[in-house]
Write a protein that binds this DNA or RNA. Structure first.
Lengths: 258, 258
DNA sequence: AAGTGGTCTAGACCACGAT
DNA sequence: TCGTGGTCTAGACCACTTG
């Protein structure tokens, strides 16, 4: 069977030779973008199955192999999860085997025990300059500040100072945070429709100030691991900026490099 | 054309139904293993091109698509580098755009300037217990210790304490390290045939001791980022164990999570 | 048995780089 | 112009899950 020219969707050659545009986009990339748009629009909710490969192939009028390659990449980026024999599912921060997917802290002695959370406060404020810059806000726009502790085996190990995009999290209160069972990112997902996709972190060693020292029950000046995280949702839009202070006396931050 | 059963290489169904073995290995995984073996054996050296996909397909008697899938995974793992129109090349730590591929330290103000190295010592010793455990050595086996500084813009920022598998690096001296232009991992590759493929890191915040403080020109007790790295070569064999102490006053360790 | 993703093949054509 | 990797298709069969 002769290969039909990829006639539908964007045909770069149809636009004339000297349009100095994005030049060329493979079909599977265009399909990938379409699927991402549907995810973003909430056509399929986290945890649900998306249509089968053959259905999507029919919908987009491409071969199954092309859809497959698009889904392969989305699965590699953790937006989708494939399960043989069952289907392809929208990834979720809830109901995961490993909760706290973004938290790379591991206890020196293998097992964690369940993680406790203790919320200190949750306030609506004008975004400070640094936060506004990180979240693409105008200085003076509203932001949400959450401060909390994470406890391992009853002992405080992490102190988080979290800033959220004000417009996206209206009505979030300390109460709702405390009541919710499960990771914070799962709450964001189900209650506010904001899915954390990926994040960039900047790590440093710092000395504990008075606040951190008291909350983590350590002497002032104790070395702490500072983890600055900028989290993004679909289309790389930044929606959360946080700074965590980790007590690494009995835990470490794990990473793989290649 | 009817698909031939994947007749050559391992046919799992031929071994009888109740061999509780590895059960099933896709053809492309077997091809991947074969290519990896050739890389390990040095059939193609770092920086060189490997045979084209059609050649490999002919050699292994599979379709080009199957070879392609194997190479795709090896490229994703940074063992190979594809270059359209030119061929597929063995990855190398030398002649890379970005040298120090494993070093995730970034200056706060964008650009680094060239990194200087200063070697403190290079000794052949019996492996301490911790090192022996990490490198799969018997306690008492020979190991190589290298200590050095990395300087950014003339100022010391990293103090590395490096331990190498003794048997693999015979004849390595401080002189050869100093003379060599380019990253240490490039030297290991060209002079000793040991390629670093991937590594696991454990990060902590610690206080500078007297040695580190002096070398990094900081007060004793300054918080430093401790980076413990276990590097592996082909087949996941551990060959290097190091502990770096990073001054993160004007640099940070970057990471991506998803 | 039916439906899903996973593997494998064969062949066509495209984009890129060297000649 | 040729050889390389990159995209796309179509179809067969395999492995896993569910009814």
């Amino acid at each position: 069977m002769a290969t039909q020219p990829p006639s539908h969707l964007t045909d770069p050659s149809a636009a004339g030779p000297e349009t100095a545009g994005p030049a060329f986009s493979p079909l599977y990339q265009q399909i990938k973008a379409l699927i991402t748009r549907s995810l973003q629009a909430g056509e399929w909710k986290p945890g649900e199955a998306i249509p089968s490969e053959v259905e999507l192939a029919a919908r987009f009028k491409v071969s199954q192999g092309t859809v497959r390659k698009a889904i392969d990449e989305l699965a590699a980026e953790n937006l989708l999860v494939r399960r043989q024999g069952k289907g392809t599912f929208v990834a979720t921060h809830a109901e995961e085997k490993v909760q706290y997917r973004f938290l790379r802290l591991t206890p020196d002695d293998g097992d964690t025990g369940p993680v406790q959370r203790r919320f200190i406060d949750c306030r609506r404020l004008r975004a400070p300059a640094e936060v506004a810059r990180a979240l693409d806000l105008k200085s003076g726009d509203a932001a949400l500040q959450i401060r909390r502790l994470l406890l391992f085996k009853g002992k405080p190990v992490v102190f988080d100072d979290i800033w959220l995009h004000g417009g996206l999290f209206k009505g979030l209160t300390a109460e709702r945070l405390s009541e919710y069972r499960g990771p914070m990112y799962a709450l964001f997902e189900t209650e506010f429709g904001v899915r954390m996709i990926r994040a960039e972190e900047k790590l440093r060693a710092v000395a504990a100030d008075a606040t951190a020292a008291e909350l983590l029950q350590l002497p002032v000046g104790t070395p702490l691991l500072s983890v600055e995280r900028l989290s993004r949702t679909y289309e790389d839009r930044p929606v959360e900026f946080r700074r965590g202070l980790y007590n690494t006396a009995e835990h470490f931050y794990r990473n793989e490099v290649s």
